[in-house]
Design a protein around this nucleic acid. Sequence first.
DNA 1: GCTTGCGGTTCATTATTTGAACCTGTATTT
DNA 2: AAATACAGGTTCAAATAATGAACCGCAAGC
Lengths: 249, 249
Amino acid sequence: MSTIGKALSLLDLISRLDRDIGLTDLARLAALDKATARRFLVELESHGFVEQDGETRRYRLGAAPVRLARIRQARFPFVAVAAPFVRALADEAGETVHLSEYSGGRLATIHVEDSSQAHRVIVEIGAALPFHATASGLAFLAFLPEDEIDRALARPLERFTPQTTVDGQAVRGFLREARERGFSINRQGFEMGVISAAAPVLAPNGRPVGALAVAAPTARADMAKMLETGAAVAAAARGIAGTYYGTKR
Amino acid sequence: MSTIGKALSLLDLISRLDRDIGLTDLARLAALDKATARRFLVELESHGFVEQDGETRRYRLGAAPVRLARIRQARFPFVAVAAPFVRALADEAGETVHLSEYSGGRLATIHVEDSSQAHRVIVEIGAALPFHATASGLAFLAFLPEDEIDRALARPLERFTPQTTVDGQAVRGFLREARERGFSINRQGFEMGVISAAAPVLAPNGRPVGALAVAAPTARADMAKMLETGAAVAAAARGIAGTYYGTKR
DNA sequence: GCTTGCGGTTCATTATTTGAACCTGTATTT
DNA sequence: AAATACAGGTTCAAATAATGAACCGCAAGC
């Protein structure tokens, strides 16, 4: 892997930690030599992507991404455009709704609207959604060209729960269903006690850019219920794409 | 410069452009070989920091910073904490107020509240504020340790307007005044027709982390007016630091 | 006062980056 | 419709930068 790739992966690793981390620990976690990790950190810090605590000497995510994010959002207000749709869907379904975006090889949650109910599914912003084990991932995959689906399913599929589908052919079956229905359903594939329905947000060229999903506790929703909800999810996803890309339909 | 530094500078360059850019142009602007620029772009793209338009083949800022920014903001809600103070000051002063943060060797605007008046100063979010030519920069510099001030003023100071102070000794005089008063004033040093007063936001260890500034049209405000306004700016900056760091004082 | 483990640094070895030249496709010009 | 220009993208020998084992100095724990 290139130096740049390694440095960006290190940044990614730092972003996934929930507290400051020392040089030695970080180097071990990143499988880098201490000297290498240090040089990367110095570079990242000089550009503001990483910050070193003056007292503890530990490292954390810096402020530079905030500046870049504002610039990006000013030009592509995806979250701002989508938020009302997400809110409306959360109210309609009475469940937690989350929006994810494809970026850097992963599907990451970028916006969440919680259900008003006390017992609800909690989704973390920034969390990565595995393609084969979440409704969002399946919805996204389903509308990708065949060769890219092959690539995504080529590696062994990680098991997250006893219900996770780790067989590639079975996953392809779900993708076919999702394409036919316009939305995917996943039951306890990623987290126990959660069932979700998701639809892709499609760019005008037909390529998915992200996914919109409703996540409900299995105590309250079953497959039949999600089949009903799915239509609303798909409609909301189309609404987001239509508003964002300025194409009506 | 290291490869990582070059790649991050390229990213920074892309972030400062207001529209998509082609490979050849970008390589020229960044003073990189086309092949080098391309490899950097591929790396940056695979991590989501850069995005290539499928049709025009041009490049732009990607979505990854949005994810990182959310994580950073969740842990350090600087803007969220500061926003009410900025709003209150904008209402009180009747002028545009902007907050900047030090990151990656520069002072960048991270939040703006516009004055309600029709004729007002416009500040761009993400814009870099030169240390020697803006009230924010002077306020920030003034509270830095001596050796870091030396470093910042070592290079030739760029001239932005006929009024820009480009003499290091004269700048040091402004810094002394700023330390005594607790806020800095700059008149037309960066943009003609604008006068500003700024105060540093100080961490508990006394180190400045950013600056808060009021920017008014010279048609409406003179030096005497800004000397009055300055006290309110300094108070607001202390308020932000107190709330953010949880120290009342 | 000895040991452990931390952040940080050094420098000979090693692997990656570099860029001039080269493709290839597509507008634009003649 | 042939010729030109210029875009994005690729190649591979030469040049340069990255690497990591061993090191230092320091602080905390024993």
